[in-house]
């Protein structure tokens, strides 16, 4: 599958042939992808395809062995996560990583601390009214859905320029997934740039503009959600999903 060259200037994020290893095991092989300003990109693939590793490489949690990562034209490969976050990249990790001993509001305060254009709490509470009700509750007392809202809210309060969502709907009840998809759609409609990794392909495709298919650490597909739907064989063989 060809990787579109396109106009480099348009890309907010460019991942250029990175190779990432976990210890001795090679997970990403010359992986490249581009995300334009205002675009929502879905990364799909089976378990172990390298989706989470891709997000962690972009955030700087893992350092790619080779290759380039550029954000807004500047090379960010090899920088620590705190520096990459400072430029406006924000990972919402799969395990959510809520600070359980801190209240909802304290979790948001930690996130906002180093953000130059931090949102006021009220703006967060407009997106997630439930968090306002629970603002004095300790993180560990939140339900799974509330924790996921808080995890996304921590990225929003920093006014992140690109949000990396890792399995945001995993393990949540269908009604909560519906609400979160609605939030994600609204964010996409407002022009917020995002990369979403998700097993729930239907949910992810409902707000993604473009899709990368990953298999064994390689990009095996690039196209629109419509291209993907038109190719059920590919979905089944490489992504292990049927739509």
């Amino acid at each position: 599958m060809p990787i579109s060259g396109g106009c480099t200037r348009m890309s907010l994020l460019e991942v250029d042939r990175i190779n990432t290893l976990y210890g001795d095991s090679h997970v990403l092989f010359d992986l490249s992808l581009r995300v334009k300003q205002g675009e929502v990109v879905a990364l799909l693939g089976r378990n172990g395809a390298g989706k989470t590793t891709t997000l962690r490489s972009i955030m700087g949690v893992l350092a790619p062995r080779s290759g380039q990562i550029r954000f807004d034209g500047k090379s960010i490969g090899g920088l620590p996560p705190s520096a990459i976050a400072g430029m406006g990249v924000q990972l919402v990790p799969e395990e959510r990583a809520i600070f359980g001993g801190l209240t909802v509001e304290e979790n948001l305060r930690v996130a906002a601390l180093t953000a130059p254009n931090a949102w006021p709490f009220d703006r967060i509470y407009q997106v997630f009214p439930r968090l306002k009700e629970r603002r004095k509750s300790a993180g560990r007392t939140l339900s799974g859905g509330e924790q996921q809202m808080l995890a996304i809210a921590r990225a929003l309060i920093r006014d992140a320029r690109i949000i990396l969502l890792d399995e945001p709907f995993e393990g949540l009840a269908p009604l909560i997934v519906r609400d979160l998809v609605e939030v994600a759609r609204n964010l996409a409609a407002e022009g917020r740039t995002m990369i979403v990794v998700e097993q729930n392909v239907t949910a992810a495709l409902s707000f993604a503009n473009r899709v990368y298919g990953l298999n064994n650490g390689h990009v095996v597909f690039e196209g629109t959600p419509a291209d993907l739907s038109a190719n059920p064989g590919l979905m089944r063989d490489f992504l292990g999903v049927g739509v």
């Binding site: 955030m59 949690v61 620590p80 996560p81 705190s82 976050a85 400072g86 924000q90 990972l91 990790p93 990583a97 600070f99 359980g100 001993g101 801190l102 304290e106 979790n107 305060r109 930690v110 996130a111 601390l113 180093t114 953000a115 921590r154 920093r158």
Partner: peptide
């Protein structure tokens, strides 16, 4: 204090504090 907030968050999960932009 804000420093205390960072320390308490850091006690729970220093990696996440870094991901949130703080040089822990």
């Amino acid at each position: 204090t804000s420093v205390g907030l960072v320390v308490r968050a850091g006690i729970e999960n220093p990696a996440m504090v870094g991901i949130l932009g703080i040089n822990v």
